[in-house]
Design a protein around this nucleic acid. Sequence first.
RNA 1: GCCGGAGUGGCGGAAUUGGCAGACGCGCACGACUCAAAAUCGUGUUCCGUAAGGAAUGUGGGUUCGAUUCCCACCUUCGGCACCA
Length: 825
Amino acid sequence: MNKTYTPKEIEPKWQAKWEADGLYHADIDPNKPKHYALTMLPYPSGDLHIGHWYAMTPSDARARYMRMNGYNVLFPMGFDAFGLPAENAAIKSGIHPMARTRDNIVRMRKQLRSMGTMFDWRREMVSCEPEYYQWTEWFFIQLYKNGLAYRKKSPVDFCPNCNTTLAREQVWGDDRHCERCGTPVIKKDLEQWFFKTTKYADELLSYEGIDWPERVRILQTNWIGKSEGAEVYFHVADGAAALMTIFTTRPDTLWGATFMVISPEHPLVEKITTPEQQAAVQTYKAQAARQSDIEREATDKEKTGVFTGAYAINPVNSAKIPIWIADYVLMSYGTGAIMAVPAHDERDFAFARKFELPIIPVIQPEGQPALDGATMEVAYSGSGKIVNSGPFNGTSVNDKKGKENPGIIAVARWLEEKGFGKLAVTYKLRDWLISRQRYWGSPIPMIYCEKDGWNPVPEDQLPVTLPENVAWKPTGESPLKLHPTWKNTLCPVCGGAATRETDTMDTFMCSSWYHLRYLSPHFSTAPFDQREYDYWMPVDTYTGGIEHANMHLMYTRFFHKALRDMGITKGNEPMTQLRNQGMVLGEDNEKMSKSRGNVISPDLLVEKYGADTVRAYLMFFARWDMGAPWDSQGIEGSARWLRRAWTLITDSTTNQPLATAEVRRDIRRKVHQTLKHVTRDFENFEFNTIVSALMSLLNDLYKAREAGAAGTPEWREAMELYVKMMAPLTPYVAEELWVNVLGKPYSVHTQPWPVVEEEAARDDEITIPIQVNGKLRDRLTVSADASEAQIKALALASAAVQKYLEGQTPKKVIVVQKKLINIVV
RNA sequence: GCCGGAGUGGCGGAAUUGGCAGACGCGCACGACUCAAAAUCGUGUUCCGUAAGGAAUGUGGGUUCGAUUCCCACCUUCGGCACCA
């Protein structure tokens, strides 16, 4: 038998058979441990790109490995089908988003099938189908009923020319213009729906019981951004009977506050600004609103701000201090107002110097000359003793945060007693804005009635479906609002005429629960079948890109916890283990994009090499969690590997067994050592070294064949184990070799993962490097059970060592058992 | 600016508790096969040096018998960011 390796024949054949046999169907089996493997679902852009392959095929290999280890594995796939691109295409060319999306999905399903993944397609979900979004709506209603959804005003980016709300990615350039027409973007305040993610801020900070990369945990922790401090109430002086609440992490520096800064968007601005300052304040406000977040965050930028004309009274010492507005104070964090203590805060210091505001030190570092506000060059934020602060003079301050700091806790307690303020905690995390002024999303199932206000659509009337016939002209409103009849409905409370919510939901809402719909995608009486939930959940392994660390992964955790508190889900976390893959860059080392022309098409690669080679190369060419640039020549190595494996395994049965006992022993050792290596690497998601270990074993098997090993029992074992080890990585060729070359019973993918025989894997002889003063001088090959004394004696007797000893007695001889000898002279 | 990764041959990478740096692969060179080419097979391939030998894991220090691995400082680069009060 000398047929060449022909993936084009092998792959479609097995794909069809696996499908026909339902080989990858995952059904509840109480007799087996379950494993729910999930990889982030794609947006149906129309073409599967190499990044999808990079995310999915190693995850598939891992899922297959788990299956061979006796787990009942669920590995589903679906489509995150709502979203902006389909709607943009509709505006541009009039193609209906549903038509376009369904076409794209048909195409991508085919591409996904070619990858040779073990997806159970019976469980597919598509988020834009009413069968799915009915339950997205239902979840919204549950959140609303449990007080976790509410409405408030919030600004959106808006293009006055296109008359439409813009996503962040549609706003371009430093001058923040519309991507379509170049018009400068303005901010518009709209009433929108929010979910109370902040209610779960503290719980989201705990990662107990989940195995997530530290990197993601740190990103989430920083995103939640918990900080402890105090709220302090400042009265506005003269006339305006207003109270300003500020948040500070440094209440111990209250006596050093020399001015106040409030955000330009703060509601008090209108109330307190004096007539003389009106013009300047309004100009500054407009300017701040035009600025991008990036501009606002630039620290090297000069501080800007405007005096409001108003003053505040510092409650602790009755000092009258000016109130400014400045863009470095954000309405979305804390209370949108701060007290400025320039002596001890870098930003306040820069601001004070620029606008010539007083600087009063209130923390004195010990053993140093007294700080002087007039001459200080930088703010001092370290430890010391409180000074210039009435009752607290002499109190120690360390450099710890919050309650850990004696100065902070002492002042905060005193503020509470006096009624000037209280201990407070603030988070960076904001509530989740879910309203989108768009058509192509899940409708928000709410009805507004003049008389009864907002009420949810009765659950028996779900889903609220998107109307088919809509106009795509950008009007500044959701196309749903412009539809002649869609929004008209009846109030569920009074039965009178009422209006539907015409905004739709953020697509992150769809992806917050899709893992539950896979459990029972066609279940019609609830979002999921409870029996399926009890068997499969939680997700055991979740894989996807790190870029989702803060948004999707945070939302889905929030969602799970909120549902848990309603009794819908169980356990504290939806996904037990998380692993992230890196990115495949173009050959030019840049991010792949159509405009750069560096996109690699997996379809063409499959055409040229077959899916198994593409899979193998993607697993081999880089550390999976790091990614690397694509190399069109590099893939030849993986193609060569499979051809060589094919050749060896198909050719090996005809030879006469001539090998010596030693050669046969060596085969077993190498095979079992490789198995050990491969098994460990699968556990750790280290796919690149799995492939290299198999390549290395193949090289050794070729040598063993030269030595007449083919046809021996050891050889047959090697062939069998080799194909089993290949199976998760390159499922097609492994199946062909298993069934049609080795003649084993179908299917290799239902075989148990082989067990390492430690005795076979054991080294009989070991080579020990001998160093003199840390430099390699000789090597010693000894029996693996040689004693330390024997090894030491042999090492000292070595001619190479003697040369370096020059007759001296070594000062010290370090023998690391079975590893190394170092002779110190 | 802050936070988090990463820096190892011409290239992608390996080194699993601090113990032989460069596994495996790409590329390249030479050789075999071939009329020739492709494919395939074999040999070699960190740098300097004819060699003995020496140097080398971003840079500079430190700990250690021994450091790619641990510590300190710095540089470069990639990613995240909402000046976080």
